[in-house]
Simulated scan of single mutants.
Amino acid sequence: MTEPTLPVRPELAGLEPYGAPQLDVPVLLNVNENPYPPSSTVVDDVAEAVRRAAGGLNRYPDRDFPALRADLADYLTRESGVPVEAAQVWAANGSNEVMLHLLQAFGGPGRTALSFAPTYSMYPEYARDTSTRWVVGRRAEDFTLDVEQAVAAVAEHRPSVVLLASPNNPTGTALDLPTVRALLDAARQVPGGCVVVVDEAYGEFRRAGVPSALELLADHPHLAVSRTMSKAFGLAGARLGYLAAAPALVDALRVVRLPYHLSAVTQAVARAALAHADELMAQVGALRAERDRTVEWLRSRGLRVAETDANFVLFGTFADRHAVWQGLLDRGVLIRETGPDGWLRVSIGTPAEMAAFQDALEEVAL
């Protein structure tokens, strides 16, 4: 009997699912995780919040989770100094789902999403999954954006969505507000409208004086600024991403979200963690300092290093970066082979983990 043919969409045929290598090695520095687990106090409070939520698991969770949105708005207000209201906040299972909601609401067949490479490798997949045309411009040699070229790309391609990571992944490059403002002004001129998304997944790691795009929210109803609890909060396993935008933009996302997409357990975990935001953020300063020490060490060894405001460092360049990556792996250190040819990316770990990385790199490539 002939096996039936599966009607896979042509653009998906033969593709492998996205994902960085998940290997059991002593030093994991490849997916930009926070290396510090929650304290026992946080764990106890999270467990108690889940216990309480478990008593009502026979009922669906609140579809629009107003209490969580209020807690997230309060956190953003304190972290950025920009007043944010609960009605301006949306959340989902990781910032990946937040981005997918944005493309579902504002992308689609006959529409275009625009970004500037090198940048986060999932962006074109969000576009593909929503049948949105994907167009990519180029960043400058130092991975900043050339404002005139970026504005010209918006005028040429007339996207419905512009995706800007700041700090950018995999380079760590942050955008200044004049650049974001210029792209917002260009987006206003796009017939039919254009949403500008500033992805601040690593925003809490930015250096002193580097602003958040949240400062532009009040005057730009077509701006969305996304964040995540995976990185600075050290809650990658909780899967909670969120954004701030004008209430009308948030309402458009509520239309495309699946019913009850945030479980009662996820909501409980996130709210319990937000109650400990100050404690969880205490490690951010240490990670910033370790990042800066890593940048200085790499440069002292004659390597090129991209300016970074994130919890990772892009460095190079190597004639055979895969050989360097494999050499580190052979010594128990897993980093990421990503970015432009010749470059590698290392997440910032504990001082002991970074010492292991440096020792391995000395043996392999220096």
Rank of each mutant, 00 (worst) to 15 (best):
L253Y: 07
A248S: 13
A238N: 12
A54S: 13
A113F: 10
N93E: 15
Q22D: 10
A272T: 10
A49H: 05
V364F: 04
A87H: 11
T41K: 06
D74V: 06
S121I: 14
R181V: 02
A236C: 05
A275Q: 14
D44K: 13
G193F: 08
G192R: 08
P340I: 02
L249F: 07
R138E: 14
E353Y: 05
E204Y: 12
A365Y: 04
N34D: 12
G14R: 11
F65Y: 09
N169R: 01
D44Y: 04
V305T: 07
D62G: 12
A310C: 04
G332F: 07
P247A: 09
Q88A: 09
L102F: 01
R304S: 15
V50L: 12
D142W: 00
D219K: 08
R345H: 02
V147C: 01
A53D: 10
L184Y: 06
E33Q: 10
G192N: 09
G193A: 07
E33R: 10
T350F: 09
L298K: 03
D129W: 12
A356F: 07
A238Y: 07
A289R: 11
R128C: 10
S39C: 10
A182C: 10
Y242G: 00
V31R: 09
F312S: 02
V147Y: 00
L314N: 03
Q149V: 06
E125V: 14
D341V: 12
S95N: 14
P61F: 05
R128K: 10
A365C: 04
A213Q: 00
L223A: 05
Q149S: 15
F318W: 11
E353P: 05
F318A: 11
L258Q: 15
A244Q: 01
L102W: 00
V295N: 01
I335G: 00
V255C: 08
A87F: 05
A323D: 13
D219Y: 06
A232H: 09
P38I: 01
L164D: 03
A153G: 03
V269C: 12
E125N: 14
Y242K: 03
N34H: 09
A277R: 15
G209M: 08
Q267V: 15
T77G: 09
Q22Y: 08
A268S: 12
Y126D: 02
V198S: 01
Y75Q: 04
A13N: 06
V50H: 09
H101Y: 13
G316H: 06
L102I: 12
E16A: 13
S115Q: 11
D142P: 00
E353A: 12
A232F: 06
E125W: 14
P83N: 04
